[in-house]
Design a protein around this nucleic acid. Structure first.
Length: 921
RNA sequence: GCGGGUGUGGUGAAAUUGGUAGACACGCCAGACUUAGGAUCUGGUGCUUCACGGCAUGUAGGUUCGAGUCCUAUCACCCGCACCA
């Protein structure tokens, strides 16, 4: 009986399906463990061998925890809404629902070959009305909430209106309009339109006007990456900035909690750092400067209030409101010319030409609040309207951009740091001692930062201020294939759709063209849009990250029709214990879902405010491309080793017709019609290809389909090989050739249990101490490595264990049976088969994980490496409880040691018990 | 430019966290069995040297009895952010 992985794997996959072996109950006395993969988008291009890497890792972990006695939730579903499906619909006229369904089917089929332990009964799609009903519902909760900065928690809008009625908004600064102030009496005097407008400035989901890329020729809004140098990527039509009313999530109100929450979760440093950068917290001060001869003030934001006496000019963003008001008549023409120039430049150009210094003097002067010095006010595109206050105080001796600007426009540079400034470049130090700085003279800058801020607050000309780089998240898409907003407009005011009318179902459409004036395709469905006379539906849809921001909660209770999930189920499954996925979602998805979780927590719907306890970012599997070398101007291909003798062009060749580096020349001739008559110049009778590490991509002919690998070697081999490749977080290239080592391992494993002729050869005889030692060493290593996601070393240990058991010719049940359980998470099919062959009637999935027992691996003696002056020269065995003095004596008497000591005087002997011995002379 | 990460054989990688560098595999070499082998098994395989030995973890220093591991500087590559005041 041979190791017939094809039949074995098919048999067990069917068995698991029929017996619902991976169905998991919400009702269990066992401790829970929630293992989740990042929501896949079923793209339709198909998987390559890199994609399932994370799924395999999480699958191993889920199976391991189950064997360790946990009730494990390991679900899978689909992030099914999204742009690619719609784009495809536009091109082919097929409805996105149809193509999405096809893609999911293909995706599922590919997954099913690999033997995952997903509980498919919990599957759902974000595009199911039964699911997006609750996406809409959560959106409405956000719409009906604001963040109370005093408590740092989301509260209902009703608590806000109650506050307004009692005390106005004095104690609760308006996040959407910081200048807004009103008293209780004023609030009560506002009409509904005004009140709703104000509340909109507080809501966590809110409407605001924002710029989008509008392409009139295409009649559509384009995403940033669809615009290249100011024209559309497709067609090259001009794109203009257009202000449109859009939905946003006020994620900035959660900035600080998102930042602090990072301390409590187990993410990689890189991931945490990426989120920190994205949030971009900075501490500084806002300072108001009067503008000379006017009643205008410029408010700047600076992180370095200590440099206030080094301010030589100020810069406003060109879009700043004050520009028109403070520009002097004689500078008006120049400023307008500059504004025209800025207007003509796309975002991309502005970013691309960072080095180019441009700007224009407004003619106005601001006054330094401390010494009354006039400071020229400039405008320049290097100051961004969206960050801080859109205005800066420029300190050329301390900031390189300010320095270059001053040099370029010949502005005087004041030195406030003495020798620390060399006149050649700015010095951004915080450690210099201040000069020319009035009351700050003689202070170290670090200390002066606080002193200056204190003085500014004392004088009432500004205040300390914390700033975040993060922006509120745009939540509207002018698209069809997404969740409709549960919002209707009456007289232009947004009202929520009643809860009992959810879901607002996506209407069927025949075409996906944009609506007029930048609206999405839904605007064309007039009888859907016009609910009643004067009442119009929102025609945008939600973005891709809406559905994925809370899906992990739904798996706890996926079929619930009365709530997004039953509270008891969510309390039981709680946080995701391990979340596995790619680093490309490091900021977007993770921040959004963290925010939604915090909001739901604040509002009392769930009992925790971080969704993912631990995140594993699997690395990418790179492609190893194969190259052939065509002699220029011919149809002759020369082998890699001989290519330097010719003038050649390297061409990518499909890795699937190359064995290692040896090209299958017949397959090559059939690969493309052009090569049918190809000639080869061989070396040693073979055509050897060159290789190159690149991204795995269809274009480079270096993709490998997991289905092909599973067909050829089996799912167990594929799973183990992916893990054997290296640490899970690390990126590494795929080499199909290397898989044979793992495949051999499984075949050899099989032969340990089953003889080709005699069948099962496992005996019930008692195990020897050596065999027990091998087993328990393995239990210890595998248990530790598996819980640490160190799967590559675990696979190595299985190989070591098998090599040792084979040479011991071990056929004892008491050794071989526990080994199957250890291996089961990695190779579930073959272990299930052998488990059954051993006569077990219960499933290996229910087996108990072997327990490590130290007594079997304890050593009484150790072979010490003996080093002289740190260099190992020989080995000597000693009992572990041997006396140091006795060891020393014996070591010094050893002739090899004697020889290396060369009669030099002994300094000391270092003895590290159970490790090594070093003789120092 | 800023931030994070990685540099170890021909290749993927290990190294109990300061203690025998290269485990386990791929590849390669030699051999056994075989009609055959892309099956299986055995042995070898960092570089260098006839050998004793010497040299080796990107590079240069340092700490230590002892460094792939810690410290300092430097180089290369990968990822993320990028006029963020």
């Amino acid at each position: 009986m041979e190791y017939n992985y094809r039949d074995i794997e098919k048999k067990w996959q069917e068995h698991w399906k029929q017996t619902k072996a991976y169905q998991v109950s919400n009702d269990s006395s066992k401790p829970k463990c929630y293992v989740l993969d990042m929501f896949p988008y079923p793209s339709g291009v198909g998987l390559h061998v890199g994609h399932p890497l994370g799924y395999i890792a999480s699958d191993i972990y889920a199976r391991y925890k189950r064997l360790k006695g946990f009730n494990v939730l390991h679900p899978m579903g689909y992030d099914a809404f999204g742009l690619p499906a719609e784009q495809y619909a536009l091109e082919t006229g097929q409805h996105p629902a149809v193509t999405t369904e096809q893609n999911i089917k293909a995706f599922r089929e590919q997954l099913d070959h690999i033997g995952f332990c997903f509980d498919w009964d919990r599957e759902f799609r974000t595009s199911d009305p039964g699911y997006y009903k609750w996406t809409q519902w959560i959106f409405l909760q956000l719409f009906d909430s604001w963040l109370n900065r005093a408590t740092q928690k989301a509260e209902r809008i009703s608590t806000l209106t109650a506050l307004f009625e009692k005390e106005g908004n004095a104690a609760h600064e308006c996040p959407g309009d910081r200048a807004l102030r009103f008293t209780a009496a004023e609030w009560k005097s506002f009409d509904e339109v005004r009140q709703r407008e104000i509340l909109m400035h507080y809501r966590l989901a809110y409407l605001a006007f924002a710029e989008v890329n509008w392409c009139p020729a295409l009649g559509t809004v384009l995403a940033n990456d669809e615009v290249v140098n100011g024209v559309s990527e497709r067609g090259g039509y001009p794109v203009i900035k257009k202000k449109m009313r859009q939905w946003f999530l006020r994620i900035t109100e959660y900035a600080n909690r998102l930042l602090e929450g990072l301390e409590q979760v187990d993410y990689s440093d890189a991931l945490r750092e990426m989120q920190r950068n994205w949030i971009g917290k900075s501490q500084g001060a806002e300072i108001r400067f009067n503008v000379k001869d006017t009643d205008q003030q410029i408010t700047v934001y600076t992180t370095r209030p200590d440099t206030i006496f080094g301010v030589d000019f100020m810069v406003l963003a060109p879009e700043h409101d004050l520009v028109n008001r403070i520009t002097t008549p004689d500078q008006k023409a120049a400023v307008e010319k500059y504004l025209d120039y800025v207007q003509s430049r796309s975002e991309r150009e502005r970013l691309a030409e960072v080095k180019q210094i441009t700007g224009c003097f407004t003619g106005a002067y601001a006054l330094n609040p401390f010494n009354g010095q006039p400071i020229p006010v400039w405008i320049s595109e290097y100051v961004l309207a969206g960050y801080g206050t859109g205005a800066i105080m420029a300190v050329p001796c301390g900031d390189q951009r300010d320095f270059l600007f001053a040099k370029h426009f010949n502005i005087h540079i004041t030195n406030i740091i003495g020798d620390a400034f060399n006149g050649q470049e700015a010095n951004p130090t915080k450690d210099a001692v201040l000069q020319n700085s009035d009351f700050l003279d003689g202070m170290v800058m670090k200390a002066a930062m606080d002193a200056a801020a204190a003085k500014i607050e004392e004088m009432g000309i500004g205040k300390r201020q914390i700033n975040y780089k993060m922006r509120d998240a745009g939540f509207s898409r002018q698209r069809y294939w997404g969740e409709p907003f549960p919002i209707v407009y009456k007289d232009g005011i947004a009202y929520p759709v009643a809860e009992n009318e959810l879901p607002v179902e996506l209407p069927h459409v025949e075409h996906y063209k944009q609506g007029e004036d930048g609206e999405g395709p839904l605007a064309n469905v007039t009888d859907w849009v016009n609910v009643a006379p004067g009442i119009r539906r929102e025609t945008n849809t939600m973005p891709g990250y809406a559905g994925s921001s809370w899906y992990f909660l739904r798996y706890a209770d996926p079929h619930n029709t009365t709530a997004f999930a039953d509270r008891k189920a969510v309390d039981y499954w709680n946080q995701v214990d391990v979340y596995v996925g790619g680093a490309e979602h490091a900021v977007g998805h993770l921040l959004y879902s963290r925010m939604w979780t915090k909001a739901l927590y604040d509002l009392g719907y769930i009992g925790f405010d971080e969704p993912y306890k631990k995140i594993i970012n699997q690395g990418m599997i790179g492609g190893s491309s194969r190259l052939v070398y065509r002699v220029r101007g011919t149809n002759t291909f020369v082998s890699h080793g001989l290519k330097d003798q010719y003038e050649t062009d390297p061409l990518h060749v499909d890795v699937n017709i190359v064995d290692g580096t040896e090209l299958d020349t017949d397959a090559f001739r059939q690969w493309k019609p052009d090569y049918r008559e190809a000639e080869f110049i061989l070396e040693d009778g073979k055509y050897i290809c060159g290789s190159l590490l690149e991204k795995m991509s269809k274009r480079l002919f270096n993709t490998v389909n997991p289905k092909d690998v599973v067909d050829k070697y089996g799912a167990d081999t594929y799973r183990m090989y992916e893990m054997f490749l290296g640490p899970i977080e690390q990126s590494k290239p795929w080499e199909t050739k290397g898989i044979e080592g793992v495949h051999r391992f499984l075949k050899k494993l099989w032969r340990l249990y089953v003889d080709e002729n005699k069948g099962l050869i496992v005996k019930d005889a008692p195990a020897t101490p050596e065999e027990l030692k091998v087993l328990h060493k393995t239990i210890q290593k595998i248990d530790g490595d598996t819980s640490n996601f160190s799967y590559n070393t675990a696979v190595s240990q299985f190989m070591i264990c098998l090599n040792e058991l084979s040479s011991l010719k071990c056929n004892k049940r008491s050794i071989l049976e526990p080994l199957l359980v250890l291996l089961c998470p990695y190779a579930p099919h073959v272990t299930a088969e052998l488990w059954q062959l051993l006569g077990n009637t219960s499933s290996i999935l229910e087996a108990a994980y072997p327990v490590f027992d130290e007594q079997y691996v304890k050593e009484s003696s150790f072979t010490y490496p003996i080093a002289v002056n740190g260099k190992t020269r020989t080995e000597m065995g000693f009992a572990l409880d041997a006396d140091n003095g006795a060891i020393e004596q014996e070591v010094l008497a050893n002739e090899v040691v004697q020889r290396w000591m060369e009669g030099k005087p002994l300094k000391k002997v270092v003895i590290v018990k159970g490790r090594m011995i070093n003789v120092v002379v």
